[in-house]
Amino acid sequence: MAEPRKVSPMMLVFYIVGALIVLLIAIISIYAAYAVFRSSQASIEDAGYFLLIATVMLILSAYLMGAMRRRTTIVSVVIPQDVLSIEECAKCSFKNVRAFMRGDYVFKTLGKCPRCSEPMSIAAIYREERGK
């Protein structure tokens, strides 16, 4: 249930190859801009066009890499949930936080409080966002 979504190897290859090709074009364009600038027929305008192409290609390459990362981090059907049950003693306010177990419900009466021997109950059940 909590496994990350699997991306098909074909798709992964497509993203990697695409990003590399675009990156290569960007590098070539930067070199071309430099070469034009240094050549005898130096033209700032033409060098500018190459730099523009290089910028577009770099952005496209970054986008492809980002898209690949997003695709591999999308989670499966049910988002993993850390659901906690909070046991509490009404008399001495002793608290015990533990993972939710099947059969737990809010205001369920439990065994005796380890501190004052009064009956404890589940005061809360909630989920914590992962990474918080």
Binding site: I25, I28, S29, A32, D46
Partner: peptide
């Protein structure tokens, strides 16, 4: 832009590679 690129391509090294870049875009 393309007119100047034509002139440009003729004047710089790795001409075919650059043409490829142009034709791709």
């Amino acid at each position: 832009p393309y007119e100047s690129l034509t002139n440009l391509i003729a004047g710089i090294p790795f001409v075919y590679l650059k043409s490829l870049v142009m034709s791709f875009l």
